[in-house]
Structure formats: C-alpha cells, structure tokens
C-alpha cells in the first residue's frame, strides 16, 4: 500500500511539474510560432503579387483566400491557400490569381514532403514558374518532354507523380473556387 501511494504521488508530481513547465514554454513561444506562420504566408503572397501592399483574408468554402491591394488601395489579385496529396504526403500550395481572375499570377509551394532531390524539386522556381500567366479557364496539363499547347507544363524528370499532383491540386482548386471568388469579389 505504501509503495502504491508513493508511485502515484511521485508520478503525479513529475507529471504536474512537467505540465507546469510546458504551459510556461508554450505561452512564451505561442505568439512567435503564430507570427512565423503568418509571416510565411505574407512573404508568399507578396512574392506572387509583388505590387501588393496589404491583404484581407477571407474564408470561402473552407479555403483561405487573400485579397491583395496595392498602395493606392487598388485590387491587384487574390491568393488561394490550398493543399492536396502528393507522392508521399500533403503538398500545401498558394495559388496567385490576377486582378480579373482570368490568369494565374504564379504558384508557391509552401510545404511538401516529396522525395528530396526528385519530387522535392517542385518547390524550385524552374518548375513552379511554369504556372505563371496560364489561363484559368482551360485546365493545365502536365506533360512529359516537350510542351505542345499553351496550357501545358513540363513534368520534372523522375518526379512525374509529384508534378502531376501539383497540377491536379491547382486545377481542382481553380475549378472549384474561381467562380465563388468572382461572386464574392462582386459584393
């Protein structure tokens, strides 16, 4: 009985102290962690729409959409935060749209766990810049080798699945969200 009481007491005490310390550290770091996430989004938004100065965040159908204005408060474009599955895990993408929602300003891969050196190359400019100025109304096609049509992008050698995944996520997001965003922007 004595041993049992000691076991409960010691373990309970250690757990309580641990909880106390973690609460303290969490409180100290919580704001910084939140800020880092916000900063990363902001960096990506202004990279896609360089003339932007500030943005308003709205949630449309569960997607976060950032409406970007320039210095003189003119609307310059919107960015959609989207994600989907890649070859090994989730890929998080920010898709930038032009002010009239007719073409893509660019995409930014925020997070991926694709194979480093192969699928991981999707976050390189050489791949992601291919999405720039593509039309929103025609689905983008991911091809191996030479590009034939205006809405083709070239897959990364040895990483067809990752390249396809990005294209699929972008197409799906555009198809679903662009009409809704147009509606929303009218209001």
């Amino acid at each position: 009985m004595k041993v049992l009481a000691k076991m409960v007491l010691v373990l309970g005490l250690i757990a309580a102290l641990s909880g106390f310390f973690l609460a303290y550290v969490n409180q100290k770091t919580y704001i910084r962690i939140k800020e880092n996430q916000e900063k990363e989004i902001a960096r990506a938004v202004f990279k896609l729409i360089p003339e932007g100065k500030d943005y308003k965040t709205s949630v449309i159908q569960g997607y976060r959409v950032y409406f970007v204005n320039d210095e003189s408060k003119h609307f310059r474009g919107a960015c959609i935060l989207t994600s989907g599955s890649g070859y090994q895990g989730e890929i998080k993408i920010l898709v930038g749209l032009s002010y009239n929602f007719k073409s893509i300003k660019g995409i930014e891969i925020l997070e991926n766990v694709e194979t480093p050196g192969l699928g991981g190359e999707i976050s390189r400019k050489s791949f992601s810049s291919q999405f720039e100025r593509k039309s929103v109304s025609i689905p983008i096609k991911c091809v191996k080798g030479e590009k034939k049509n205006s809405n083709d992008i070239q897959a990364i050698t040895g990483a067809t699945i990752s390249s396809d995944s990005v294209t699929r996520i972008v197409n799906r997001t555009l198809k679903k969200l662009v009409p809704l965003i147009k509606e929303y922007a009218k209001q």
Partner: peptide, 13 residues
C-alpha cells in the same frame, strides 16, 4: 522534447 520542439518552431522555423 516538447520544449526543444517549441523553441525550434518559434526561433528557427
């Protein structure tokens, strides 16, 4: 471990 993880997330994202 949790302290180390939170520290890295806050200071070296």
């Amino acid at each position: 471990v949790t302290i180390a993880d939170l520290f890295l997330k806050a200071n070296l994202p």
